[in-house]
């Protein structure tokens, strides 16, 4: 049973996750599009990452001691910007520029555009291999920071992901944590139909990683997985496989025909935000 302080942490994180979802929907409304299905599904993971697990300084994104968070799946930028706003790194009013010319918030994440964006993702399957280099570099500098690589389940198809998985285990990178969003949705359909990847925990385990699988929309489970990954003493890389539901928190989007790029009609953005607000009010 949770202690009052644990319940306090979970409530705080639930508030952050609610606001990340809300911010992502507002950005989606600006352009009338965006990967909001993924943003809603991954908001709980991002809330725990940016409002609990990561060490960083909002006003000094280059701080040498920061934990590095690599957004390998660059198309999750809309979710990530929402997390950066929630983390105090980007001002909230900037979300009105999302996806516009000369904005710091392009539709696919790029390092040179956005404060706090460590890499240019988007060419999928790059993040984990970059993370291996950064983790080696941090270890060589005796810098205790963690490298988090955040990736989609579609990136499991890329051979480079498994080159990096082998490399990370070979070099005993205990400062590397990989987060995989398993929403079972790729451009051409369900991941299990496009390129089956199960049994996934066994795969990572056999590659020499410490593996956890958790419901990525169960905040206490997400929280526990992050804490376990960080506290593990073994000099081996660790992965958390998060099963998530696209559209989470907005029932009509949860039920919508499943697509990589979820359809949202013009009048539905405000409806979705209203539903989030109502549920948040009821939960408090």
């Amino acid at each position: 049973m949770n202690t009052p302080s644990e319940r306090g942490v979970e409530q705080r994180l639930a508030d952050h996750a609610y606001r990340i979802r809300r911010l992502a929907l507002r950005m989606g409304e600006v352009q009338g599009q965006g990967y909001v299905g993924q943003a809603l599904g991954y908001a709980d993971v991002l809330a725990v990452a940016y409002c609990h697990a990561l060490r960083f300084k909002p006003d000094d994104v280059e701080w040498a001691g920061r934990d590095r968070f690599l957004l390998s799946h660059g198309h999750y930028a809309i979710a990530f910007y929402a997390a950066l706003i929630e983390a105090g790194i980007i001002p909230e009013d900037e979300l009105d520029t999302y996806g516009s010319d000369d904005s710091r918030l392009p539709m696919s994440g790029m390092a040179s555009y956005t404060p706090g964006m460590e890499i240019s993702g988007g060419s999928l399957g790059h993040g984990l291999a970059i993370a291996v280099g950064m983790a080696l570099g941090l270890r060589l500098k005796a810098n205790p920071a963690f490298v988090y690589n955040s990736m989609s389940d579609g990136e499991l198809d890329e051979g480079s992901t498994w080159e990096a998985a082998m490399g990370a285990a070979h070099h005993g990178l205990g400062n590397l944590i990989c987060l995989v969003d398993i929403n079972n949705q790729q451009a051409d359909g369900p991941s299990s139909k496009v390129m089956g990847f199960e049994p996934l925990a066994d795969k990572w385990g056999s590659f020499g990683w410490h593996v956890q699988r958790a419901d990525g929309n169960d905040l206490p489970a997400v929280l526990a997985a992050f804490d376990t990954a960080r506290a593990l003493p073994a000099e081996k890389p660790r992965v958390i496989l998060f099963d998530t539901l696209m559209g989470k928190g907005v029932p009509f989007l949860e039920r919508r025909e499943k697509n990589h790029f979820i359809r949202v009609d013009p009048d539905e953005w405000q409806q979705a935000i209203d539903i989030l607000d109502q549920n948040q009010g009821a939960a408090r």
């Binding site: 291999a129 291996v132 080696l136 500098k141 080159e163 990096a164």
Partner: peptide, 23 residues
């Protein structure tokens, strides 16, 4: 010295990662 194995994609990306850390 870092042996990356016969994995050229990892070699290039990891080199990039190390450069990002100042090497």
């Amino acid at each position: 010295f870092f042996q990356m194995g016969m994995a050229e994609q990892l070699l290039m990306a990891a080199a990039g990662g190390m450069a990002k850390e100042g090497f």
